[in-house]
Design a protein around this nucleic acid. Sequence first.
RNA 1: AGGCGCGUAGCUCAGUGGGAGAGCGCUUCCCUGACACGGAAGAGGUCGGCGGUUCGAAACCGCCCGCGCCUACCA
Length: 903
Amino acid sequence: MTDTPTETPDTEEILEKVYEPKAVETKWRALWEEHGLGTADAMSEKPPFTMVIPPPNITGALHVGHALNTTIQDILARYKRMKGFSVLWLPGIDHAGIATQNVVERELAKEGIDRHALGRDAFIEKVWEWKERYGSTILNQQKRLGASCDWTRLRFTMDEGLSKAVREVFTKLYKEGLIYRGNYIVNWCPRCHTALSDIEVQFEETDGKLYYMVYPIVDSDGAKGGVKSLTVATTRPETMLGDTAVAVNPTDERYMDLIGKKIKLPLTGREIPIVADEHVSAEFGTGAVKITPAHDFNDFEIAGRHSLESINILDINAVLNENAHKYEGLDRYAGRKKVTEDLDALGLLEKVEPHKIMIGECYRCSTVVEPRLSRQWFVKVKPLAGPAIEAVENGSTAFVPKSWEKTYFEWMRNIRDWCISRQIWWGHRIPAWHCEECAHITLPDGEADPVLCDGCGSDKIAQDSDVLDTWFSSALWPFSTLGWPETTEDLAKYYPTSVLSTSFDIIFFWVARMMMMGLKFRGEVPFKEVYIHALIRDFEGKKMSKSKGNVIDPLIMMDEYGTDALRFTLAAFAAQGRDIKLAEERIAGYRNFCNKLWNLARFTLMNVDENSEEAGTETEGISLADKWILTKFADCLQTVEEALDAYQFDTAAKALYSFVWHELCDWYVELIKPDLWGDNGEERKAKTAGVLLVVLRDTLKLLHPIMPFITEEIYANLPVEKDGRGLHEEEFPVAIGAYPEETKELDSIMEVIGAIRNLRTENNVKPGASVESTCQIDGAAARDTLQRGAEYIERLARVSSITVTPTGERPLDSVSIVVSGGPEVFISLKGLIDVEAETKKIEGEIAKEIAERKVIEGKLSNSSFVDKAPEAVVAKVRARLMEINEKIEKLENGLERIRGMGK
RNA sequence: AGGCGCGUAGCUCAGUGGGAGAGCGCUUCCCUGACACGGAAGAGGUCGGCGGUUCGAAACCGCCCGCGCCUACCA
């Protein structure tokens, strides 16, 4: 390939022809870590910028939602670092109690081991072993994305420090009466064998049935009209075994006389009362509701109001228990079948109708949850929610986009007590000790576990066997990770955090709870802003899920297209307030962009040397094209900066894309090639090479937060002063200069180039052939501009000669285009003109312009427009009218001449 | 049922009171000394519908239609 080794090295030796991300990414990941890129310095004088990563589930693997959120945070972290902040981006993972326990139990099951046989301590040891082996998977995947977290401050919710925070918070809340224990109905997962909080249940609309069951009334003779029975409607007939009442609305005339009477419950023979309750809707079903307090949330509340008994008919597996008598041992669905069959046989099943119902499923294992009565720990949330609501109302914490505040308020204002106990082993064990002798609950005072009962002094106390909801520890994340409850430098420097980036579905689980805990225990909001990013869906707008098989795996995408391409895609689609429909072609498109940038760098390296940077920094004597690109760069810089400050990642990405591809590559590089080849002297060559280098250097800085790998690699190859710094350590660039007048000039020259190119294509001129061109325009200044651009026009439009004249005779054998507000542009075709086509084209043009003129004239003849619209607008419209008139005149002249040629 | 959001070029989406835009796809031509993961030139839209406000509406307001999501105790 290289045959002239004595000359400047062949470009192939500098950079590959096509960008190959793999090696570059591996190299820079290692170097960044070596350089301590993300390591924060709490002693720094710089202002702090803090983010805590939403800790991913330790059992998880990176999905495209993580990839988006990690990318967003990394863009912010790198941007803020370059802007001079002391950035702490703190990474971590949560212990995911239920999910992790499930995973480890499944592993053990393969070896035929049950956790109960193993025992609690041994099992937990197994979980830690598992964590050591697999727990870093997702962290490594985040590193692969380029995440510039402070990996020296990595935290895990089960760390000693964080566990200390959990115990401190639990104890304090209990002592203040904000944590209590009680027997309530909760969501129960019959597969995970634990209680779940309200929001851990996901509702799915399902095709269910509404069963109408006949309940005989005891002593019906006394009732008016001799009513002998009552029909109730239910979606869960099997629960009738646990019915303890039937309720009707007190104002429902159909049933008024029955209130206070009794039902003889079929199949069991129990007698239960008919009660009146406001909650019952007379319109739905039959207006009479069976009440099963142990297995329905509403029924539980109604039971409370009427002091009804609760009969639990299901065990922890949702299998009917001894209270279900002869149905004992059937699971809930088999029980349903048998109960309905038996009722039907007795003639007590009136009818069955199809009915849509919302069924709750466990968010970890999708098993249908069972409302179940049990003793659990709860956080009394209302007193904590108040300040958390206020903090958002008064702007201490702001949501971006703001519309999410409504969701937050909605939930916070209707919040119910939070069930925090879980009947599993993996997690923070509840720091409460029960006394065998007096039933008193003893809490630790300090770090040591209590040994004696606070109440009676007995030493027969045992720690509660439940663990806390994982989200309980997550709620402390913004301050527990900084060292709380110790007083630390990190806490002083970096709390409250600056922004939390997360997805909307986590507002309830996490954001709201962090707000409550942060305010309660730090007296300050945990973050000043909450950026709610988009949800990623597949190309059809469906939620991605493994079962649908429509997931886009970010790891595969990184393999195939490069990490920068994936990151850029995610940024470019991260418009606020809208879901992202992601398709693989998008990523391929931005892979091409990476390659474009790469080749721009190759081109630059071929044309610059170690003196170029200095030459480019001094703007004296630079060319029209140089001034143009510096101006466009300044515009791009401003757009990117404003966009990133406002979390408009799509705007930033698109501005960069269009600047690099269309302005830098398509125009500037093409314009300056003759300069770089020395056609216009050595001085010009050196100057332009300088501007090219400096613009590329600063463009890399702008791009770096979004595409860290490729920009770092190119930057390392540029002959610019680095002082041993990598791009990630550089400051964000500032504009070198802006030249609006010259930029306008070159823009108008480009329009002429566009016009000539258009004429060439329309008239089938071979791409290689040169043509003669004439530009006619009145006004010396306009002609000067074109004259100054003559070289550019000749080169980029392949014109052999260009003549600039005032408006006048049409050149022989030519076709033309009128540039609005610019010249009439001709190219000569020497007898190759298709007169008919040309005539048609011009006629079409004229028709279009006349139509527009009509609209504009209409505006101007409307006195209220002229009077009321701002002057600038009216002036603009007037100028436009002149432009159009001029254009029409030229077109008409042209048409006349063309017609003459046809004869 | 309530809340939020969306409906702009074939597809994905910007635009949010004064001349309809981008990317991808498509058509035609071109391997010109950074790049075919490329270059040049094009075609393509009653801005969901109907009313209203305004000199002026894709944008603001109201209603309607369609779609999505979240919340909810109609069993």
